[in-house]
Design a protein around this nucleic acid. Structure first.
Length: 500
RNA sequence: GCCCCCAUCGUCUAGAGGCCUAGGACGCCACCCUUUCAAGGUGGAGAUCACCGGUUCGAAUCCGGUUGGGGGUACCA
């Protein structure tokens, strides 16, 4: 049977790293098996769901490259797929119909207990050291009792009878799991008193009606799976195979949460992590190829991915490793790709500088391309671009005279060095202002004066960039241009003299 | 409390009875390269395979228990 699996996010928050990883594994499994990957929006928590979150989730999944075969689309685009609609709030009649069916077969019943009554039950159970569970007060109501509750104006919820015995299933990553219905908390509510259906119910109705063959989700759903299986059976639906993925953890090994970690996919995108790096990193959280390779594209992952090889233990989200992987993929980008992706980040940095009162120049396409060799090996994330090359686009840089003087030098030597260097930089222009033309004469100068080249270069570096660390010096000078290089050396000399 | 799951270097992991005096990667340290920073290269420190018992000629690998950790237990998803 052809594989069908899905990611079913709830638009009650921005796309979470954990959801992204679950989506990735579903996607990889579907692609590996030649199956179908479905996106379904679980928006029945109307109070907390928003279109902005929905948008963020869809955008994030697109950014990751996890294209779904069936599902809703963003911004008013039509949904695609034969099992639509793919938003649960648009599927309400189906849940109502399913609930009616369970009711008519007495697999479910109306419950009129108030939240207050339930709270009292729970408190008593807690005091008696029992597991909280529904006591079944409304499980066997007579018609008269029901009429009385209705007359009293009580709106009922619908509860599903969980019955006796135990439920067992063979989880693809965990093996056999068996849970007694005793541990399920009693008959569970499937429809609220306002008529809207609850998660455990909608997920089963939809997985059944959308013909899901595999349910691949986080381990936090493992204990709930028996409820789902009971519901599938009651609905006369085929029970899909389950695979519960290990959780992604905070550094303290608790479930990854906003409180302790950065969990929003959008934050990582905003910092300049790239799709290739994030996908690669996420795939290796809970899965390994079994070989010593670890750099994989999305397609390569789909090729090798095996659900059965997924780990059972949770995995700590290690940002250092993410950055390393990201850097690996940054270096593998083509010039065009890097230019396209870094441009918005540079622009944003320049906007910030401008907003803080600095005069900036905007890069041309040609300048952007020329930047690539200077930054490609130095960028862990795209967001670091400004700190590397902003000196090129700033009209003026502030130079600290103390930084200007190399450790082995004093002020007069520095002044001397900058003066000599200025002359050479000015002369080189006669030929061509290129790195290859600049370096030899400057080195020759050092030989003549008995200077270490590094010292002279450092003085020039600080004069021109205002910093002690920068991309390779001569490339930086070329990127800046001869005229502005000379002006900055002049300004640095003035600063040196003026601070005496 | 009750139920369920998990357990190899700080972290991500390889390992499916002898190939393991436990391999790789991140991070860390040193050295090399080098105009700074990176990148790259080489080397190093780092795991009594949570613990205890059992099975076996032989266990990180199988079984049981203990401990520790995590998850679930809503008219949230």
């Amino acid at each position: 049977m052809a594989v069908r699996c899905r990611i079913a996010p709830s638009p009650t928050g921005p796309l979470h790293i954990g959801t992204a990883r679950t989506a990735l594994f579903n996607y990889l499994f579907a692609r590996h098996e030649g199956g179908t990957f479905v996106l379904r929006l679980e928006d029945t928590d109307v109070a907390r769901s928003t279109v902005a979150f929905e948008r963020d989730i869809l955008d994030g999944l697109h950014w990751l490259g996890l294209e779904w075969d069936e599902g809703p689309e963003v911004a008013g685009q039509p949904a695609r797929g034969p099992y639509g609609p793919y938003r649960q709030m648009e599927r309400l009649p189906r849940y109502a119909e399913a609930a009616e069916r369970l009711l008519s077969q007495d697999r479910a019943y109306h419950c009129y207990c108030t939240p207050e009554e339930l709270a009292v039950d729970r408190a008593a159970q807690e005091a008696a050291h029992q597991a909280p569970h529904y006591v079944g007060r409304c499980a066997r109501l007579t018609a008269a009792e029901r009429r009385a509750h209705e007359a009293a104006g009580r709106a009922p919820v619908i509860r599903f009878r969980v019955g006796q015995g135990s439920v067992a299933f063979d989880d693809i990553v965990r093996g056999r799991v068996e849970i007694s219905t005793e541990a399920l908390g009693g008959d569970l509510i499937i429809v609220r008193s306002d008529g809207t259906p609850l998660y455990h119910f909608t997920v089963v109705v939809d997985d059944a009606s959308m013909a899901m063959t595999h349910v691949i989700r986080g381990e936090d759903h493992l204990s709930n799976t028996p409820k789902h299986i009971l519901l599938f059976r009651a609905l006369d639906a085929a029970v899909p195979a389950f695979a519960h993925l290990p959780l992604i953890l905070n550094p303290d090994r608790t479930k990854m949460s906003k409180r302790k970690s950065q969990t929003a996919m959008a934050d990582y995108i905003g910092q300049g992590f790239i799709q290739e790096g994030v996908v690669n990193f996420l795939a290796l959280l809970g899965w390994a190829s079994g070989t010593e390779e670890e750099l994989f594209t999305l397609d390569e992952l789909a090729d090798r991915f095996e659900l059965g090889a997924v780990h059972q233990g949770g995995a700590v989200f290690d940002r250092e490793r993410l950055e390393w992987l990201n850097g690996q993929w940054m270096r593998r980008l083509t010039t065009d790709q890097l230019v396209e992706r870094m441009a918005p980040f540079l622009a944003a940095d320049l906007d910030r500088l401008e907003a803080s009162g600095a005069a900036v120049r905007r890069p041309t396409d040609g300048q952007l391309r020329a930047l690539v060799p200077l930054v490609q090996e130095r960028l862990p994330i795209l967001g670091a671009i400004g700190s590397l090359v902003d000196f090129i686009f700033l009209e003026d840089v502030a130079v600290d005279p103390d930084l200007l003087v190399p450790k082995r030098w004093d002020r007069p030597t520095t002044l001397d060095g900058l003066t000599e260097a200025r002359r050479i930089v000015a002369d080189v222009g006669g030929v061509a202002f290129e790195a290859d033309e600049l370096e030899p004469p400057l080195r020759a100068l050092c030989d003549r004066r008995g200077w270490k080249a590094g010292d002279l270069f450092m003085a020039i570096r600080v004069a021109v960039t205002g910093r002690t660390t920068a991309p390779p010096l001569f490339d930086s000078l070329v990127a800046l241009g001869q005229e502005r290089t000379l002006a900055r050396i002049d300004a640095a000399r003035d600063a040196l003299v003026g601070s005496d």
